[in-house]
Amino acid sequence: MSSVHGKSQRNGEGSLPMTPISATDAAGQPLAADAPFFIVMNAGSGRQQADATRAVLERELGAAGRHFEMRVVDDPRQLESVAREAASAAAAQDGVLVGAGGDGTLCTVAHAALDAGCPFAVLPRGTFNYFSRDHGIPADLDESTRLLLDARAYPVQVGFVNERMFIVNASLGLYPRLLEDRETYKRQFGRSRLVALWSALSTMLKPHRHLRLHLEHEGSTTEVSSSTLFVGNNRLQMEQIGMPEEARALEQGLLAAIAPRPVGRLMHLWLSLHGAAGRLSDSDHVVSFTFERIVVTHPSKKRRLVKIATDGEITRLRMPLEFRVSDKPLLLLKPEPAVAQANRS
């Protein structure tokens, strides 16, 4: 690590957010004019990108006379510890913790900001950038860097599965396998959306098993059989796959769960194409519901380890799995709502 200075079943819709947002929060919280920035970047995307990011920071922030520190993480295993060190420094100096990277990197850095109680900002450097795009943060590095200088901090919702945070989505079953296969393809053929799509189609045509899960929600238990359980926390992603009601529910302080009914491989592929075309809600083979908190167990009640994907990162967690909305929001530097909406369109 180096450091540089300078049709669906829905429950619970209409519920209020767990953490009320005051009028001041809704208008955004201004930062001190001299608030320092602590940037954490995962160098997994390449040293060339890290050097380009550093050059823009020195040009834009340096010209404005703003202090910043950039910490480039060479070993992904150190990302969490480096992020927490930077968050501690940001909190102590009334500064801002900034994540530079894709959604997985941003989630790790954002978790450190949430725990430290300091504002969080984003420099999008990933392939899909769902989190930044959903909040209207420009993909252009120069523009997103300039945004740091005059943006306000707005409260945004994050989710948890057990003690692991997610800002875009979390899942178990087939979806984590899709992500693992995608990384294998990317290592062979490079990072692009076309490679990601080809990998997903290849995985869908392989044999896969269905999960039997018990979902405890608002005092009742439902058994679900599905290849995957997908929990979304990103309005843009929900809209893109054709789940507009679930997208709106996210603005009411809820998470959205999607589970395809037990179907064969070809129907799974058909559902995926429906999602890619933004028509998933048209299918009778998908169950969805919204919630603040659910607990997922296995019928055997064993505390088994299961593979979980959170914002593209794979880990293993022990059942039962508790999916929930965080009881406190993340303070995110982003454009004012009207500008964010225009950037998102």
Rank of each mutant, 00 (worst) to 15 (best):
L205C: 11
L201K: 05
E163M: 10
L205N: 09
A249Y: 02
G136S: 01
L211N: 09
G242L: 14
R152D: 04
G219Q: 06
L201F: 10
E239V: 08
L205F: 08
G190K: 07
E180G: 02
I241E: 13
A170M: 02
F160S: 02
Q188F: 04
G190L: 07
H217T: 06
S171N: 09
G219W: 06
G264A: 04
R146H: 05
E218D: 15
A247R: 03
G275T: 06
S171W: 04
N169Y: 12
S202M: 05
P207W: 13
L172T: 04
T203L: 01
K206L: 12
N234R: 08
L236C: 05
H268Q: 15
E251F: 05
A259E: 01
Q157T: 08
F160M: 08
L254K: 06
V168Q: 10
H210T: 11
A170H: 09
A256S: 13
V231P: 03
N162Y: 06
S202G: 05
A170G: 08
P260V: 11
W270D: 12
I137C: 00
M204K: 00
P138D: 00
G136K: 00
Y154D: 13
A276F: 12
R193Q: 12
V168Y: 12
Q252N: 13
A196N: 06
L269A: 15
H217D: 07
A276W: 10
I137Q: 01
P155V: 04
H135C: 03
L194F: 14
A256P: 03
V168T: 12
L149M: 03
A247C: 01
Q188S: 08
L254E: 06
F230V: 00
E183F: 10
G232S: 13
E180Q: 15
Y175G: 03
A247N: 01
P176Q: 12
W198F: 06
G219I: 09
H268M: 14
E216A: 14
N233R: 08
R187I: 01
F230N: 02
Q237G: 14
L172R: 02
H208F: 15
V156W: 03
A196E: 07
I137K: 00
N169K: 11
E180Y: 07
S272T: 15
P176N: 11
F230Q: 00
W270R: 15
A153G: 05
R212L: 15
A151M: 02
M204T: 11
P244Y: 14
V161D: 05
L254Q: 13
F166W: 13
D181W: 07
Y154K: 04
F189Q: 09
L213G: 04
A256F: 00
L236Q: 11
M243I: 15
T184Q: 15
A256H: 02
R193I: 08
W198A: 13
W198V: 12
E245H: 10
H217L: 14
R193N: 11
L148M: 02
R209M: 14
N169P: 04
V161C: 13
R261N: 07
S225Q: 15
G173A: 02
R235T: 10
L213N: 07
R177F: 02
Y154Q: 06
R182G: 07
A139H: 03
E245F: 03
L273P: 01
S226A: 14
S192Y: 12
R248A: 08
E163V: 09
G159T: 10
R191F: 03
R187Q: 14
H210D: 15
S202N: 11
